[in-house]
Design a protein around this nucleic acid. Structure first.
Length: 267
DNA sequence: ATGACTCTCATTGAGAGA
């Protein structure tokens, strides 16, 4: 069967609901992984997407983070959070917060994770150590499925540009997160576990960027980054027939600062 | 040297994003 799986950091599903519904109707993905819902599980617009034929598994707590999987080809064995997922201990907090950044489900022939990897903020910030620890817990969570025969993929906002080619100007990122060797080594560990980077094609220009800052006309100047990734196992990657970044969804007012990434497969 | 833009929860600002 042909299956279309997509991932999109939507930067508030509440603010973006009209754009989301419009995009579901035009792109017609079978499965959509969402990140940065910025709403609680209860507040997710389940009914609105159900009218378009999608079941939803959401995992959110409110203002920050939040992930979901929408599917019109089945939604089984939902898991919220990574096993052994580390929490983030903020300066003014007494307890570490295990944030809603990962959700898994089986959708028809494939099992997928929708992930929103911590930003890291700055290299000397506690959030950066948290990011690396979080990525190690992700590796442990997926190592079995990565080596398995069932089509499997981790999709989402990894907040890492895999190579220097994946940022508009590597000099502009000197000393910053998203491009450091330890972050890239975490992606290397996922590849070593058997996952492959399914690189999409750009619909315009030379690089398949997926994120452009809202400021300073970054999108029209194409000052972007490829940080929304699809890491699939052999069965998944071998079944890919096409993949592209839908930059059309980044155009105009009221859009997310990320574009959806679409993956077509013959499973 | 700094801010830029957008979102949420708040209350005319803070915090986070990357």
């Amino acid at each position: 069967m042909t299956v279309r799986i997509a991932t999109w950091n939507i930067n508030s599903v509440t603010a973006r609901l009209p754009k989301l519904l419009e995009w579901l109707e035009s792109a017609e993905p079978d499965v959509l992984c969402l990140q940065e819902l910025k709403c609680s599980t209860e507040a997710f617009p389940h009914e609105a997407v159900k009218e378009l034929g999608y079941d939803t598994a959401a995992h959110g707590t409110g203002r920050w983070n939040g992930v979901a999987i929408l599917s019109r080809i089945g939604l089984e064995d939902v898991v919220r959070g990574l096993p052994e997922q580390p929490g983030y201990l903020a300066d003014d907090a007494l307890l570490a917060d295990v944030e809603p950044r990962a959700i898994a489900a089986t959708c028809g022939p494939a099992r997928v994770w929708s992930v929103y990897v911590p930003n890291g903020r700055e290299v000397d910030h506690a959030h950066y150590r948290y990011k690396l620890d979080w990525l190690e817990s992700l590796r442990r969570a997926v190592v079995e499925d990565a080596a398995g025969a069932r089509p499997f993929a981790v999709l989402g906002d990894f907040n890492i540009a895999p190579t220097d080619e994946d940022v508009y100007d590597v000099a502009a990122f000197a000393g910053l997160t998203h491009v450091t060797p330890p972050e890239r080594a975490s992606l290397g560990n996922l590849r070593e576990a058997g996952l492959r980077d399914v690189v999409p094609r750009p619909l315009k220009y030379d690089h398949p960027y997926t994120y452009w800052d809202y400021r300073q006309l970054a999108f029209p100047k194409n000052r972007g980054m490829r940080i929304d990734l699809t890491y699939g196992n052999k069965a998944f990657a071998d079944a890919v027939t096409d993949s592209y970044v839908d930059r059309e969804a980044r155009k105009g007012k009221g859009t997310s600062d990320h574009a959806p990434v679409v993956v077509d497969l013959d499973l």
